[in-house]
Design a binder for these strands. Structure first.
Length: 198
DNA sequence: TCGCCTCGAGTTCA
DNA sequence: CTCGAGGCGA
């Protein structure tokens, strides 16, 4: 694999020393993403953001995961025969093994990340589950999620009777209706902050 | 068999 | 962002 050199950049217009250094540093930085993030990007059927996070709690790098059998995987909460098989199949494909080789030789080989063990025992929202619908004024969706999770709450994306609160924004979808019919308490953005103790 | 939850793809809007 | 499909656990 060809590795971009600092001198390559210096030949380009507009790339004086500092800018070149910044770019190279930025590229290096991009290789330091959490394992769960890379796992999601592999495109294994049934493995999205949440599943990937769960998997990294049991397997701390791709080598370990690639050696897992279907039975091993099914011991994990939320992983059944179907998903387990999809994972085993993915790692058995020669084309995918090549991808892994390339990642490894490019230095993209994350091990388990710092995050995710967000202990749910702390924070004002501990033990509560939230569903967010509509658009928030002061938050991006990711932002609301982080806000809630950092205070011990959990964010899921469909309303059920287990949902503690529905956080309602502008232009809500069908979730608002469902929450109402289930008698789920509805929170405005401000009410959420209040509940969180702001 | 059913309800809950995640995934994944389609839509809409700035 | 929404919403339907389908996997998983009970």
């Amino acid at each position: 694999m060809y590795t971009l050199k600092r001198d390559d950049l210096l030949g380009l217009e507009g790339f004086a020393g500092k800018k070149a250094d910044n770019l190279l540093a930025s590229i290096q930085q991009s290789k330091q993403q959490p394992l769960a993030r890379l796992l999601t990007a592999l495109g294994i059927r049934g493995v999205g953001e949440v599943m990937a996070g769960d998997l990294t709690r049991y397997y701390s790098d791709l080598d370990q995961l690639s050696r897992a059998t279907s039975d091993d995987l099914q011991l994990i909460e939320g992983v059944g025969p179907n998903t387990a098989q999809a994972i085993v199949d993915w790692f058995s494909r020669p084309a995918n093994r090549k991808i892994l080789d390339k990642l490894r030789s490019a230095g993209v080989w994350p091990i388990v990340s710092q995050e995710t063990t967000s202990d749910t025992s702390k924070g004002n929202l501990a033990g509560m589950t939230f569903v967010v619908t509509g658009t928030m004024a002061d938050f991006t969706r990711q932002g609301v999620k982080e806000y809630i999770e950092s205070r011990g709450g959990k964010v899921i994306d469909s309303v059920s009777k287990n949902t503690s609160y529905l956080v309602l924004g502008e232009n809500p979808g069908s979730k608002a209706e469902k929450a109402r019919s289930l008698g789920i308490p509805i929170l405005s953005e401000g009410a959420l902050r209040q509940l969180a103790g702001e």
